[in-house]
Computed example of a mutant assay.
Amino acid sequence: MNRWHCLPSEPGPAVASLGSPPAWQPLDRSARLLRLAFGLGWPLAMAATPSWLGRGGLGLGCGFRALTGMPCPLCGGTHACAALVQGDWAAAWAASPGALILLLWLVLLTGQAVVEGAQGRRRVARWPWWHPAVLAAVGGGLVLSWGLRLAGLA
C-alpha cells in the first residue's frame, strides 16, 4: 500500500509501455503554419471585427436578422468582441452572454493552436475543452442566451 495517494502504487497507465502510441504526433509544415496562422490571427481578427461589421467599416449586418427580423444566437457578439478587446468583461456579458461563452471557448482553441503550431506536433488525446460536456455547455449557453433574448428577458 502506498501512503502517497497521488502516486500510483503499481505501474499502471501512468507508466508508458514500449508498445503504446505516442502522446504527440508530428505535424507537417502546412498543418503547423495553419495552426500558427489561426492561433495568432484570430485575436487580431477579433480586435478588428467591430470595425469590419460596424457602420464605419464594411457595414455588413446580421444576415439572419435581415431575413427573419429576429436576433440571431450571436447577436451582440460584435459588441462583446469590442468590449473584450477593451477589457470590459461586464459590457461583454451584457452584450451577449452566449457569445461571450463562445468567445472564451475560442480563446482555448487559439491557445491549443499556438501550442501545437509552435511545437510542431499535435496532441493525440483530446484536449479537455473538446470533451462533449464542455461542448454541450458552450452550445447550451449560446442557445439559452438566445432564448432569453427572444423572450425579452435578456
Rank of each mutant, 00 (worst) to 15 (best):
A23Y: 09
R65E: 12
P26F: 10
R149E: 10
W4Q: 13
A48G: 02
L18P: 00
P21G: 13
W93M: 11
G54E: 08
F38M: 04
A66S: 10
A118G: 02
G56M: 08
G56T: 12
A48Q: 08
R149V: 07
L106A: 07
A83F: 06
L18Y: 12
R121C: 14
P43Q: 03
M1N: 09
S20F: 04
L148M: 07
A16N: 04
G139I: 00
A82E: 13
M1Y: 11
Q119G: 14
T68V: 06
T78D: 07
A125G: 06
P128K: 12
T68W: 10
S51T: 12
L40T: 00
L144I: 01
W42Q: 02
T110Y: 06
V138M: 05
A151R: 10
P26C: 14
R123I: 05
R29Q: 14
D88E: 06
G59D: 05
A48W: 05
C62V: 01
G141C: 08
R123F: 04
I101N: 02
R121M: 11
L153G: 02
T110D: 01
A16Q: 09
G57H: 03
R55Q: 11
G41L: 01
S96Y: 03
E116D: 13
P128D: 10
A136L: 15
G152A: 05
G139W: 12
A66I: 02
P73T: 10
W24K: 09
L27T: 09
A45F: 08
L67W: 15
G141E: 08
I101Q: 03
V15Y: 05
G141Y: 14
W89R: 08
A136I: 04
A95E: 05
G140I: 00
R29D: 10
D28V: 14
W89G: 00
W24F: 15
G39K: 01
P50V: 02
V15K: 11
W130S: 14
A151K: 03
S17W: 15
W4I: 14
A151D: 02
W24T: 08
W4V: 15
M46V: 13
S96N: 14
L144S: 11
L148Y: 05
V115T: 08
P132Q: 11
G87D: 05
V138S: 03
H79V: 08
G139V: 00
N2L: 15
